[in-house]
Simulated assay, not measured.
Amino acid sequence: MKEVTVMIKEQTATPLLLPYRELYKMNKEGAREKLIETYKRTGSISETARLWGTSRNVVRKWLRRANEGGSLSDLSRRPKNSPRKTDDWVEVVVLYEKDKKNRGPMRLSSEIKKKYNISIHPNTVAKILKRNEAKTKKYRTIPGIKRSFYPHESVDPLTHFQVDIKEIADIKALPRSCYEAIFNNNLPRYQFTAICVRTRIRFVAYGYEKSCSNGIGFLVLVVMWLRRHGIKGEIIFQMDNGEEWGGMSVRKVKHIQEKILKPLNARMTRIRKGRAYENGVVERSHRIDDEEFYAVHLDKIFSEEDFLNNALRWTYIYNIERQHFGRYMDGNTPFEKLKSLIPNIKEEIALFPPFILDKIIPIYQHIPFAKKDKKIKMGRHSQSGNNLYVQYNSVFKK
């Protein structure tokens, strides 16, 4: 009997070369079959567990599963009853809105409540998206450089603006049909943007040229608009070192600051070179423009007049209707945030008309160093400039 036991141990010593845990990582079902084969040779649960370096409970579990004729694969751990499980039709709604608008969990939760009257927590939305592998495209900043904390709550509303120019004809951001529509229909190529960092109220104008006259003219129009609506404090424009804002020329910048903006109680301040994230609020708004306006509507716009009408509607949606979930916004629209800070403010201040800067009376007449714009072909509207109030009326005539 002793000789038989020694023979069995010698025959079953091979599995010790590869412990059960390592074999399990390589092939789960194969490891469990080896356990059963070893037990059939040894006839001992304890000996099988010792040889494979595992517990007796593991050996018992898979012996019981084999005797019952069950599969050696992992069984589902899903509970039989889930009384608090989200209804399937609600998941369909979440996935539909995600695919349609590419929103994050907080915005999806808010919009589903508003549109379908379905209350669903943002964490539940996030789990539904994760379970269905519905991912949102993410953008990263420069490695190793932290985002600057912007003191949003320390500035007065409508006094501190981030300003930038956006090239609308960006082939990397737009579908080809929308990109080609800009040139085929002779639509504006550039968007001039000023956004209030405290409230996210945004003023936008357009141009066919990225020129200093258009850039400075835009700043003057924004200041005039704010003064017209009762904003009396100093206005600060934060921007990069682009040529449309004077560039690196000390003489140009000094002239703009002292002769043009200072009399209006306004001034410019610059971000550091190569640090676009310091103007992150306006940069983020440009991404929204691409995703929710240009990529959706440009290929359906066939004239400058249609473009202005759509741009004005988009201004209304962005400032009045669209919720924002950035820092300190808490799901409010820009105008709701502004209204909470200045209760007597009127809605009209958020409806800055989308001017074509090239067609307004050239402000560069008061800027001696600026290069005068050449006459641009505008189809039926071919002209080098027109009256400001004519342009304003053309935008609001409908």
Rank of each mutant, 00 (worst) to 15 (best):
197 V>D: 07
155 V>R: 12
193 T>D: 04
191 Q>V: 05
180 E>F: 03
131 R>A: 15
146 K>R: 14
151 P>L: 13
163 V>P: 00
218 F>H: 07
219 L>V: 00
153 E>S: 12
221 L>T: 04
219 L>H: 04
163 V>M: 03
219 L>W: 06
208 Y>P: 04
156 D>S: 13
188 P>N: 10
213 S>R: 11
153 E>V: 13
209 E>F: 05
133 E>G: 02
141 T>M: 05
185 N>Q: 10
152 H>Q: 14
139 Y>R: 12
208 Y>L: 06
205 A>W: 00
145 I>G: 07
164 D>Q: 06
138 K>F: 08
146 K>P: 10
191 Q>L: 14
166 K>E: 06
159 T>M: 02
155 V>C: 08
192 F>Y: 15
128 I>K: 10
154 S>E: 14
215 G>F: 07
188 P>S: 11
141 T>E: 07
198 R>S: 09
144 G>M: 10
217 G>T: 05
178 C>N: 11
184 N>L: 13
160 H>R: 11
215 G>T: 00
200 R>N: 14
215 G>W: 09
223 V>I: 11
130 K>W: 08
189 R>C: 06
198 R>W: 03
206 Y>T: 09
134 A>E: 14
190 Y>D: 03
222 V>P: 00
182 I>N: 01
159 T>C: 05
212 C>V: 06
160 H>S: 08
180 E>Y: 00
170 D>S: 12
159 T>L: 06
169 A>M: 07
206 Y>E: 07
131 R>S: 13
144 G>W: 09
168 I>C: 08
163 V>C: 04
220 V>L: 05
160 H>D: 13
142 I>H: 11
204 V>K: 05
166 K>N: 13
167 E>V: 13
181 A>R: 06
126 A>K: 15
126 A>V: 10
163 V>I: 12
190 Y>N: 12
160 H>F: 15
133 E>F: 12
147 R>A: 14
138 K>E: 15
189 R>D: 07
182 I>G: 03
195 I>G: 05
126 A>H: 13
138 K>S: 11
205 A>S: 15
213 S>L: 11
145 I>Q: 11
192 F>E: 04
168 I>A: 02
214 N>H: 02
129 L>T: 10
193 T>M: 07
127 K>H: 14
197 V>Y: 08
140 R>F: 14
168 I>L: 08
150 Y>D: 13
150 Y>I: 15
156 D>H: 10
219 L>Q: 02
183 F>A: 05
184 N>K: 12
202 R>D: 03
154 S>A: 02
176 R>H: 09
163 V>D: 01
154 S>C: 09
188 P>Q: 05
168 I>T: 06
138 K>N: 08
